[in-house]
C-alpha cells in the first residue's frame, strides 16, 4: 500500500500560500479575489479534514479545493454571457461571414508576415494576445482559459459550465474567429 501522506495545517501558509495564490492569479487576474480564494481554500480544507484520505499530497488536495472555487467563479462569470445560438442559427459567427457562408471580404484572413519560431517570445505579441483575450465576452474567456490553460477535457468543461456540446463548440469557434481577427488587426498584419 502507498504511504499515507500526513497533514499539517499549521505549516500550510508557509508551504503553500504563495503557490496557491499564483495558481489562482494565473486564472483570474484579480489579486483581491485571489487572496479571498486562498483564504477560503484553507478554511474549507480545515472544515473538511476528515475527507482527506492521504492518497494525494497536501498540496494536490489543497489545489483541488482551490480549483473548485475557481470553477465557481468561472461559472458565475459564465452566467453573465448570453449563450450563442446554434451554429445554423441567425447572427451566428456574424459579422465574419456573408449569408451564403462565404467570408466577408474585409474579414477574410490575410497572410501574416511574421514567422517567428516561438511567437510568444515576442513580448509585444504576448501583450496583444492578452488584450484580445480581455475583449472576449466573459463566458468565452472562461472556456478558452479552461481549455488552453488547464487543458481540461471538452466534456468536463461542458459539465462544469452546464453547456451543451454544440454551444461549447460554437463558443470555441467564435472565440477563435474573434482572436484571429483581433491579432491580425493589431499585430500580425504584414
Amino acid at each position: 500500500m502507498a504511504k499515507k501522506e500526513s497533514i499539517n495545517p499549521e505549516q500550510w501558509v508557509a508551504a503553500y500560500a504563495d503557490y496557491l495564490y499564483a495558481f489562482a492569479l494565473k486564472r483570474l487576474q484579480d489579486p483581491e479575489l485571489c487572496k479571498d480564494l486562498v483564504q477560503d481554500t484553507f478554511v474549507s480544507a480545515i472544515k473538511n479534514l476528515r475527507n482527506y484520505n492521504g492518497s494525494s499530497s497536501e498540496k494536490t488536495w489543497l489545489t483541488a479545493i482551490l480549483k473548485n472555487k475557481i470553477t465557481d467563479v468561472f461559472r458565475s462569470k459564465a452566467s453573465e454571457t448570453p449563450l450563442p445560438g446554434h451554429l445554423s442559427g441567425e447572427n451566428n459567427t456574424q459579422p465574419f461571414f456573408e449569408e451564403n457562408g462565404h467570408w466577408k471580404d474585409k474579414h477574410a484572413p490575410r497572410i501574416w508576415e511574421t514567422e517567428e519560431a516561438d511567437p510568444l517570445e515576442n513580448e509585444e505579441l504576448k501583450q496583444t494576445l492578452e488584450r484580445c483575450l480581455e475583449k472576449l465576452p466573459p463566458l468565452w474567456a472562461v472556456v478558452v482559459s479552461m481549455k488552453y490553460l488547464d487543458e481540461e477535457k471538452s466534456d468536463h468543461i461542458c459539465k462544469e459550465l452546464s453547456l451543451s456540446p454544440s454551444n461549447y463548440w460554437v463558443i470555441i469557434h467564435r472565440a477563435k474567429l474573434s482572436l484571429r481577427a483581433c491579432l491580425e488587426k493589431n499585430w500580425l498584419k504584414g
Binding site: 504563495d18 494565473k26 484572413p109 516561438d118 492578452e130 478558452v144 488552453y148 482572436l179 484571429r180 491579432l183
Partner: peptide, 30 residues
C-alpha cells in the same frame, strides 16, 4: 482563404497553450 485560416487557427492554438497573462505577476507572492 480557409487554408490560410487553417494554419492561423493552429498558430493561435499554439499561442494560447503557451500563454501566460503578463499584467499581474504573482512573483512577489502574498
Amino acid at each position: 482563404v480557409c487554408r490560410l485560416y487553417y494554419s492561423q487557427s493552429r498558430r493561435i492554438d499554439q499561442m494560447l497553450r503557451g500563454f501566460y497573462p503578463t499584467r499581474i505577476k504573482p512573483e512577489n507572492g502574498l
